[in-house]
């Protein structure tokens, strides 16, 4: 899932090889939270303390134990009890920065004018690494996409296709369809993401709005099993017509056979040791 700022900060600290100084020290320039303004209420002040900042992370499931995250050998590094939690779902607060606020305002205005509230159509907004993502409720997708295409303040003329992602552990939101839109008029990009449960993998087709996604939706059906309702001919495109299964899903094995090399058996790539 989308990583929060803490993840990136931890990564950059690691890469610099910097050790956190021992003992109580005043927060240095690396600490992201600015000291609370004098007029801040006490609760907010409390929440922005360094010790509280990453607290919501502890409620997330553990994704890695130990230093290396290896699944089949004991961790002898001395960090065997280290627990790394999954990054919490991002929901970026305003302002998003860059041109992102203008897009969100324009979309909000366009949806209001059409009688739909912004939050009726958009689950959450993520501004991360200089990219803006709208998580759209699936039943509203064609409406939102049409606004993105037609509204003069948005005018995203090109759709770069659909990319599926499978998150088998994300209960109720296993299958994601990701659309990348490009505005030539304003020279901007935006990403729409729709999440659907594996048990009901239906998303309205966008072929009516962006004819360019025709083959891309067929590919996503072929590889992930997402059904795009209203597609003119949703058939397999890369795999043979009589293929069973959807190969890009995480529960679909990569395949391969063990190979013997100088007396040792090297297991197939998806059977090898890996580090999560």
């Amino acid at each position: 899932m989308s990583g929060p700022d803490e993840t990136r900060k931890a990564g950059s600290e690691q890469t610099q090889g910097a050790q956190a100084p021992q003992g109580p020290v005043p927060p240095g320039p690396a600490t992201p939270a600015a000291p609370p303004a004098p007029g801040t209420p006490p609760e907010e002040e409390e929440a922005s303390l360094p010790a509280r900042l990453g607290e919501e992370r502890l409620a997330e499931p553990v994704v890695r134990m130990g230093l290396f995250g290896s699944h089949d050998i004991p961790d002898t590094s001395g960090y065997g009890l280290l627990r790394v939690h999954q990054a919490p779902l991002l929901d970026s607060p305003r302002p998003y920065g860059s041109y992102f606020d203008e897009i969100a305002d324009a979309l909000g205005a366009a949806l209001e004018a059409a009688g739909t509230g912004f939050s009726d159509a958009i689950e959450r907004v993520v501004a991360d690494r200089g990219e803006l993502t709208f998580y759209v409720r699936r039943e509203r997708l064609p409406e939102v996409a049409a606004k993105f295409r037609d509204d003069p303040a948005l005018r995203f003329e090109l759709c770069g296709g659909v990319s599926g992602v499978h998150y088998p552990d994300d209960a109720g939101r296993e299958l994601h369809a990701v659309y990348h839109l490009l505005s030539i008029t304003h020279n901007r990009r935006v990403r729409l993401e729709v999440a659907v449960p594996d048990a009901d993998p239906h998303i309205p087709s966008l072929v009516g709005v962006y004819p360019a996604v025709n083959w891309h939706e067929r590919e996503t059906w072929d590889f992930f099993g997402i059904v795009f309702d209203g597609h003119p001919a949703l058939t397999r495109i890369e795999m043979p017509d009589d293929w069973k299964g959807h190969p890009q899903r995480k529960d679909y094995p990569l395949g391969g056979i063990p190979v013997e090399y100088r007396g040792a058996k090297i297991p197939a790539p998806d059977e090898r040791r890996h580090y999560s």
Partner: peptide, 19 residues
């Protein structure tokens, strides 16, 4: 770090994007 990125470049044939 966890997250997603889409970068598009101008390839000889047009927009080549990596998600």
């Amino acid at each position: 770090p966890a997250g997603q990125a889409y970068v598009a470049i101008e390839s000889p044939r047009g927009e080549l994007g990596a998600h």
